[in-house]
Simulated assay, not measured.
Amino acid sequence: MEEKSVQAELASYTGKLLREHYGKGPASVYVSIKHPFITFYLRDFLTPTERVLRSQGHDRKVEETRDLLMKEVLHELKATLTVVADLHVENLYYDWSLENRTGIILGVLSEDKANKDEHFDEYPAKGKLHEEINRVSRQVEKEPEETNSLYLNDRTLVIQRKGILVDIEKELIRSGYEQPLRLSKRRLEKDMLDRRLYESILGVTIIDLFVDWDFQLDQSFITLIIQKNKPM
Rank of each mutant, 00 (worst) to 15 (best):
Ile105Lys: 02
Gly107Thr: 03
Gly107Leu: 01
Ser110Gly: 08
Ser110Asp: 14
Glu111Arg: 12
Glu111Phe: 06
Asp112Leu: 08
Asp112Cys: 09
Asp112Thr: 15
Lys113Phe: 15
Lys113Gln: 13
Lys113Asp: 14
Lys113Glu: 15
Lys113Tyr: 10
Lys113Leu: 14
Ala114Asp: 11
Ala114Gln: 09
Ala114Thr: 13
Ala114Leu: 09
Asn115Asp: 12
Asn115Trp: 07
Asn115Gln: 12
Asn115Lys: 14
Asn115Gly: 07
Lys116Ile: 12
Lys116Pro: 03
Asp117Pro: 01
Glu118Gln: 13
Glu118Trp: 08
Glu118His: 09
His119Pro: 00
His119Met: 10
Phe120Gly: 01
Phe120Asp: 02
Asp121Gln: 13
Asp121Tyr: 13
Asp121Thr: 15
Tyr123His: 13
Pro124His: 03
Pro124Tyr: 06
Gly127Pro: 01
Leu129Tyr: 06
His130Asn: 06
Glu131Tyr: 12
Glu131Ser: 10
Glu131Cys: 07
Glu132Ala: 10
Glu132Thr: 08
Glu132Lys: 08
Ile133Arg: 01
Ile133Met: 11
Asn134Asp: 14
Asn134Thr: 11
Asn134Phe: 00
Arg135Glu: 15
Val136Pro: 02
Val136Leu: 07
Arg138Ala: 11
Gln139Cys: 02
Val140Trp: 11
Glu141Lys: 15
Glu143Thr: 09
Glu143Arg: 15
Pro144Gly: 01
Glu145Ala: 14
Glu146Asn: 12
Glu146Tyr: 09
Thr147Trp: 00
Thr147Ala: 12
Thr147Phe: 00
Thr147Tyr: 04
Thr147Gln: 07
Ser149Gly: 03
Leu150Asn: 02
Leu150Ser: 09
Leu150Val: 08
Leu150Ala: 04
Tyr151Glu: 04
Tyr151Ala: 05
Tyr151Leu: 03
Tyr151Trp: 15
Leu152Gly: 04
Asn153Val: 01
Asn153Cys: 02
Asn153Trp: 03
Asp154Cys: 03
Arg155Phe: 09
Thr156Met: 07
Leu157Phe: 07
Val158Cys: 07
Ile159His: 02
Gln160Trp: 09
Gln160Asn: 09
Gln160Cys: 05
Arg161Glu: 13
Lys162Asp: 12
Gly163Val: 02
Gly163Thr: 03
Gly163Asp: 11
Ile164Asn: 01
Ile164Lys: 01
Ile164Pro: 00
Leu165Arg: 07
Val166Ala: 04
Val166Met: 07
Val166Gln: 08
Asp167Gln: 15
Ile168Glu: 10
Glu169Gly: 04
Glu169Asn: 05
Lys170Pro: 00
Glu171Ser: 06
Glu171Phe: 10
Leu172Lys: 11
Leu172Val: 05
Ile173Ser: 03
Ile173Thr: 03
Arg174Leu: 14
Ser175Leu: 13
Ser175Phe: 13
Gly176Gln: 01
Gly176Ile: 03
Glu178Gln: 11
Gln179Ser: 12
Gln179Tyr: 05
Leu181Glu: 00
Leu181Pro: 01
Leu181Gly: 02
Leu181Tyr: 03
Leu181Val: 05
Leu181Cys: 00
Arg182Met: 04
Arg182Lys: 13
Leu183Gly: 00
Ser184Met: 11
Lys185Arg: 14
Lys185Val: 07
Arg186His: 09
Arg186Glu: 10
Arg186Val: 03
Leu188His: 10
Glu189Asp: 09
Asp191Arg: 15
Asp191Gly: 12
Met192Tyr: 13
Asp194Trp: 06
Asp194Asn: 14
Arg196Trp: 09
Arg196Lys: 15
